[in-house]
């Protein structure tokens, strides 16, 4: 890697981090306004998450007496850094990922675990019984949603390996050859099931109702995050915001990699802008269905019910999806 490349990567990373944070907070604001409107409330202004961040940054950062300070302080940083680093592997609109050619789908699945793990570590390090229960629940939740998530990814990997393409696990390959164009009617149904699975895994990953058991405001007073305040809490919020963008971007990249510019025959720069805007719209739609709409219509699950839902129902759903995709490619 030469110097020029290095600078490109550094600048790109900075830009991606900025985009991730700003977009994450922006979508958080949209979610809050939409949810408020659906509950017949006025809701906060769109920029409320930014105001919250600014305020949290000025607040005192309290480390509890029986916490492990270095671990307690490191956890939010790790969470944010790992969330941003996933951004580098994901195509945004017609922008190819910065680390194209280095990572693939499997790597993203692993990277997605890190912010959640950082939260678990931070929770356990904060020395509060509520945070400890929250951390245990977060681990259980993680193990639970991993099954349907992994099954979905395997379905994709298997399908693209089957097609005999170069570098079948790469997101760039998926983006170049949309899954819908590669499957027959059976596979189409299978893919729909996988899409539903992904939409329902997203709130689990993000800790939103009904899967917000690890934080459970009314039970654990915030659970994992109960002892966090000030800057550390702000970093966790930012990492959640970025993670929301990452997850929805993965869903978009897997299922809706289409761009407008190729249909409109545009020149380079406007095409990129249009694709970028279209990408934001796609993220919004996914976010609306998987976060806002689910979170207003449900009560919180118990931790045992979270496991049941992910392992039994969504596990079965994604397996059926996988089998349909496989059967489809055998009979074609």
């Amino acid at each position: 890697m030469n110097i020029g490349n290095l600078i490109m990567v550094v600048v790109g990373t900075g830009a991606m981090a900025l985009f991730g944070i700003v977009a994450g907070l922006f979508y958080m604001g949209i979610d809050r306004v939409l949810v408020a409107r659906m509950q017949a409330r006025i809701g906060p202004p769109l920029r409320q998450p930014f105001i919250d961040m600014a305020k949290l940054m000025t607040k005192q950062n309290i480390v509890p007496a029986n916490a492990i300070p270095w671990l307690f302080n490191a956890a939010p940083l790790v969470a944010l850094a790992s969330s941003i680093s996933i951004m580098l592997y994901i195509p945004l609109g017609s922008f190819a990922p910065i680390f194209r050619g280095y990572g693939d789908l499997i790597l993203i699945v692993y990277l997605l675990v890190i912010p959640a793990l950082a939260m678990v570590v931070g929770g356990l390090a904060s020395g509060s019984p509520y945070a400890t229960i929250g951390a245990q629940r977060e681990m259980v939740t993680m193990i639970s949603y991993e099954l349907p998530l992994a099954t979905t990814i395997i379905a994709f990997a298997w399908k693209y390996a089957q097609l005999g393409l170069d570098n079948p696990f790469s997101l760039a390959t998926v983006a170049a050859t949309p899954i819908w164009s590669q499957v027959g009617p059976l596979g189409f149904v299978g893919c729909l099931l996988l899409l539903v699975t992904m939409i329902l895994v997203t709130p689990g990953e993000l800790g939103k109702i009904p899967f917000d058991t690890p934080e459970a405001e009314t039970e654990l007073a915030g659970g994992l995050l109960v002892e966090y305040s000030g800057r550390n809490l702000a970093l966790f919020y930012l990492s959640l915001g970025v993670k929301a963008i990452v997850l929805t971007a993965v869903v978009v990249a897997l299922f809706f990699p289409y761009n407008l510019s190729s249909y409109l025959a545009m020149s380079a720069l406007p095409a990129r802008l249009v694709d970028g805007a279209f990408f934001l719209v796609k993220i919004f739609v996914i976010m609306f269905f998987s976060v806002s709409l689910i979170r207003i219509a449900m009560a919180r699950f118990r931790i045992t019910q979270v496991v049941d839902v992910y392992w039994k129902y969504l596990g079965a759903l994604s397996l059926v999806g996988l089998i349909l995709v496989m059967v489809d490619s055998f009979i074609r």
Binding site: M38, Q39, R41, E217, T218, I296, A297, R300
Partner: peptide, 16 residues
């Protein structure tokens, strides 16, 4: 009760 269950939409409706 709805709020304790994490079902805030029902909470807002009842209180309205």
């Amino acid at each position: 009760a709805a709020h304790e269950l994490g079902f805030d939409s029902a909470f807002y409706l009842a209180w309205r």
